[in-house]
Simulated assay, not measured.
Amino acid sequence: MKIETKRKIQALSTVLFILYLFLLTYFLFFAESFDRMYTEREYAYNLEPFKEIHRFWTYREELGFLAVFTNLAGNVICFMPFGAILPVLNRKARNFFVITFLSFEFSLLVECAQLISRVGSFDVDDLMLNTIGGVLGFLIFTICNQVRRKRYG
């Protein structure tokens, strides 16, 4: 690949990653449509693995498809860009274990920020789902990178 093409891809990836971080921050901390309001509320947290996943699955009929999808699939989907774009920005991130660790670490940072700011809640299930999302994003990057290498050499 030409150096000029690599630079363009790096620049575009940087812009996309920054945009992704801004959008993620907005939806996780400021979007009123997701009940993200600064009010006097208690600290909310769940430290029991699979508790919220089980609750959403058990009460899926009562909660409705949108609520279940937003919570379960949304936590996975919102971290897929992290795992897909980061390896483009940094060659050291082109490793399954590195991406898994960074996805977990970034998710932990987000969950702690939600706990401290009392916007949203700290949920160990979200940590797991977000990490899975980062790994899936990395797998998509890996597949696309292999296809690109086969096609363009």
Rank of each mutant, 00 (worst) to 15 (best):
F69Q: 05
E42R: 13
L136Q: 01
E62H: 13
D123K: 05
R149V: 04
L129K: 06
E105Q: 13
V110C: 01
C112A: 09
Y20E: 12
N130S: 02
F34A: 07
L66H: 06
N95A: 05
I3Y: 13
R151K: 13
F30R: 02
F34C: 09
L63T: 10
Q114T: 00
V110T: 08
C144S: 14
A73H: 07
V135L: 07
L72A: 09
I3E: 10
E4L: 09
N90G: 05
L136G: 03
A84W: 07
I116Y: 09
N145V: 05
E48Y: 15
Y26A: 08
E40F: 12
L115Q: 04
I9V: 15
R36A: 08
F122M: 07
A11L: 15
F17S: 06
D126R: 09
K51V: 00
A44W: 12
T70M: 09
G120A: 03
L139T: 06
F141R: 04
R36F: 07
F50H: 03
L21E: 07
T5R: 15
F106S: 08
E61K: 13
E62D: 12
G83F: 03
L12D: 10
I9M: 14
I77S: 00
V147M: 11
E42M: 11
G153N: 11
L109P: 04
R148Y: 15
V76P: 02
Y26I: 06
F34E: 12
I143R: 14
R7I: 10
L109H: 02
M128I: 14
V98M: 03
T25G: 09
G134S: 00
I99V: 11
F50D: 06
R55D: 14
H54R: 14
V76F: 02
I140W: 04
R7S: 09
V98R: 00
I143W: 12
V110Y: 00
N145C: 08
S121I: 05
I18G: 11
W57R: 09
I143A: 15
N145H: 15
K2A: 07
I99Q: 07
S107H: 04
G64F: 02
V98W: 00
L21M: 15
L23G: 15
K92L: 09
A44F: 12
F106E: 02
Q10F: 15
C144M: 14
L89N: 10
K51E: 05
L63I: 04
R55W: 14
D123L: 02
K92N: 12
V135E: 02
C112W: 07
V68D: 00
G120D: 01
C144P: 07
V147L: 15
F65Q: 02
A11E: 09
G153P: 00
F141D: 04
